[in-house]
């Protein structure tokens, strides 16, 4: 499997990464290199091996349902670019 330049540009757009043609071209090369690696790995016979969702063969740790985090809005908002009435302000987005 390999990616077309169009696909690379689409992925970049979905990830909101600005790319020019030269960057897209070089990224296409890198990504296709990775795909070749994956192809090599896919040549291994994995019949009967259950796919893993995580590199570690462990189960998820759980926590009890208890409130442990105090209100630290003041500290968090001190580093925010802009706030008002307790809200974080961002460029207007309406779909």
């Amino acid at each position: 499997m390999s990616l077309t330049l169009e696909q690379v540009k689409r992925i970049a757009h979905l990830a909101r990464i600005e790319t020019n043609d030269a960057e897209a071209l070089s990224t296409q090369g890198h990504l296709n290199g990775i795909f070749q690696l994956i192809e090599q790995m896919q040549a291994v016979d994995t019949t009967g091996v259950e796919p893993m969702a995580h590199a570690q063969d462990l189960g998820q740790r759980l926590r009890d349902d208890a409130v442990s985090e105090p209100d630290r809005r003041k500290a968090y908002q001190a580093v925010a670019p802009e706030t008002e009435a307790g809200l974080y302000l961002v460029p207007k987005v309406i779909e």
């Binding site: 208890a66 409130v67 985090e69 630290r72 809005r73 307790g86």
Partner: peptide
Amino acid sequence: TVSKIFSGASTAFGAEPNTQACAVDLAL
């Protein structure tokens, strides 16, 4: 639940904005 699914911040309804948004919820 009284706390969030992946953090220990409260889920109580109607709190002042962002007073129940901890570091995990803010994705720090």
